[in-house]
């Protein structure tokens, strides 16, 4: 594979140097062209139309863990580019991330982050702390700033189970690499405003995992209701939002059948009350 391996087939000297435990740092030293967003782009004009946009993501903590849910739609302008996209990524045993914004770059970023965490864990013999993971992702977003300024903005949402605190945590980012810890719930993407309004009314401290998943689906439904770029549950094609759960037992993708059942509950509920469940006024 490529220049780094030319000739003898023995492991190149760069591979044998003690150096860093960061895969990103190693790659930028040995083969920087493999990193996302390292190529020079022509100045002027936005290239944002070149890759579809990933839309709404919601995350919510519940006692003992955290839940991450995303709709399935990707859009290019007014066109639906993809209706069954997976925007959630298991990054390691105790964390997951989701992306909103330029899909092509976001997926690459998630893949790289996944390798970064695993690489560190294998080299050091222990995983990074959740804080460490969150900070690492911030640096990686920052390195995408050049592309972000040309329209390829990627914003991730990181969730994880913090073993030292025994609780689920949520981290959001801005395109510059600013890292913000969110409490209780958060949403990102084009429909996030509507989703957050919905979560605000539905969130309770004592939600069970299933109820948290249901609340996330309600929030995504509300986002899809008002934002054209967010996809709602597609009952005819059987395409439903995806849900990842991270608890002390690790990461788990909620089974399709389980999500389908919850989504059907939401859809059925909306036939009677199209605006969804009400919250008490006082």
């Amino acid at each position: 594979m490529s220049e780094a391996f030319g000739g003898s087939g023995r492991l190149p000297a760069a591979f044998m140097s003690p150096g860093t435990s960061s895969f990103v740092d190693f790659l930028s030293a040995v083969s920087p062209d493999r990193l996302p967003g390292r190529s020079d782009l022509p100045q002027g004009g936005s290239g944002a139309h070149l890759t579809p946009e990933a839309t709404t993501i919601v995350a919510m903590t519940f006692p003992g863990g955290v839940i991450l849910a995303g709709d399935r739609r990707a859009t290019s302008g007014n066109v639906i580019a993809n209706r069954d996209m997976d925007k959630l990524f298991r990054t390691d045993e105790f964390s997951a991330m989701a992306i909103a914004g330029a899909a092509g770059i976001g997926i690459e970023l998630a893949k790289l982050f996944q390798v970064e965490l695993e690489h560190y864990e294998k080299r050091e013999g222990r995983p990074l702390s959740l804080e460490g993971k969150a900070n690492r992702l911030a640096t990686m977003i920052r390195s995408n700033l050049g592309l972000a300024m040309q329209g390829f903005v990627v914003v991730p949402l990181l969730v994880g189970y913090d073993e030292s605190r025994s609780e689920g945590r949520i981290f959001s980012y801005d395109p510059v690499g600013g890292r913000y810890e969110e409490h209780r719930y958060h949403s990102i993407g084009s429909g996030s405003v509507y989703a957050r309004g919905s979560l605000k009314k539905l969130y309770r401290e004592d939600l069970t995992e299933t109820d948290a998943a249901l609340a996330a689906l309600q929030a995504l439904y509300d986002a899809a209701d008002d934002d054209s770029a967010t996809g709602g549950p597609d009952v005819y094609r059987k395409i439903y939002p995806l849900i990842d759960v991270v608890t002390d037992e690790g990461h788990r993708r909620m089974a399709a059948a389980e999500v389908e059942e919850l989504a059907e509950t939401v859809v059925t509920g909306r036939t009677e009350r199209p605006d969804g469940p009400t919250a008490p006024v006082r």
């Binding site: 594979m1 492991l11 591979f15 044998m16 895969f23 083969s31 893949k111 390798v115 080299r123």
Partner: peptide, 17 residues
């Protein structure tokens, strides 16, 4: 240990590419 670390880099780089 040197061989192991190099192997991890090699494997991760190949898998990523």
């Amino acid at each position: 240990e040197n061989l192991r670390l190099a192997g991890v880099r090699f494997a991760d780089m190949h898998g990523y590419t």
